Amino acid sequence: MDSGHIWQQFGVVTWRSRRVQSSSQAVMAGCLALALFASGLWWSGALTPHIRWSLDGFFLHAQVDENGVLSTDIDIELENEGPTPFTFTGISAEIPGLRFLPADEARNERFTVTVAGGGMEYLRRRVVITDCAAVPHEPRPVTFTYRTWLRSGSAEAMWNSWRLSGPAGSVLVAWQRGLAGKVCNGAVNPDQF
């Protein structure tokens, strides 16, 4: 008789295999629970909010200040498509000829906007057109920063193309080109708008 038979006779081998089997099941159950928890956080929007951004160009008009700076106010719609609220904290873009200005309290612009789960909010920002001709024709993204109860982050949004109408019909253009064209034309010919 060898030692393996003795261990088997006292049930030690069976006890060890059951213990290994139950611990491997516990590890698998823990991994599954962790995966379900992470997917629940993602679905709720706590990790990355489910945001729909849009820009309304209907009310754009050119503003030229006393220093000759050409600008316009844009209204941005923030829609939270998830159940977890998020707080919008900033907007920026690397677009030649166009620059977003920070929020200005004197102009009643909010620095942060909290959007409830399933809710919608609007915010207004001032955009300066530094060079009408330099604004690119290909679509460029806008970067938004946000904060949830779990973390802070940023997201890029590519706004939809605009349809410009003219004597030859209508044509689709990148959002920033449409914005710059409308504002620059409005500054040159304010009676047109």
Rank of each mutant, 00 (worst) to 15 (best):
M1F: 10
G4F: 00
W7E: 08
Q8W: 03
G11V: 08
G11W: 09
V13K: 10
T14H: 03
R16V: 09
R18E: 07
Q21S: 10
S22G: 05
S24N: 14
A26W: 03
M28D: 08
L32C: 03
A33C: 12
L34S: 15
F37W: 12
A38V: 15
S39K: 03
S39E: 04
L41M: 15
L47R: 08
T48A: 04
T48Q: 07
P49C: 08
P49G: 08
I51C: 01
I51R: 08
D56N: 15
F59W: 02
V64S: 05
N67I: 01
G68S: 09
G68R: 07
G68A: 04
V69I: 11
L70G: 00
T72R: 07
T72W: 00
D73T: 09
I74L: 10
D75L: 12
I76C: 00
L78Q: 03
E79N: 10
N80C: 12
E81D: 12
T84L: 03
A93Q: 03
I95N: 04
R99V: 14
F100V: 14
L101W: 02
E105R: 15
T112L: 00
T114V: 01
Y122H: 11
R124L: 06
R126Q: 13
V127D: 14
T130H: 11
A133K: 10
V142W: 00
Y146F: 15
T148N: 07
L150K: 02
S152Q: 15
G153K: 10
S154K: 12
E156D: 14
N160D: 13
W162V: 04
W162C: 04
W162R: 02
L164M: 12
G166P: 03
P167N: 12
A168G: 12
A168W: 10
V171Y: 04
V171P: 03
L172N: 11
L172A: 10
Q176N: 14
R177W: 10
R177S: 13
G178W: 06
A180P: 00
G181T: 14
N185A: 13
A187G: 13
A187S: 11
D191S: 09
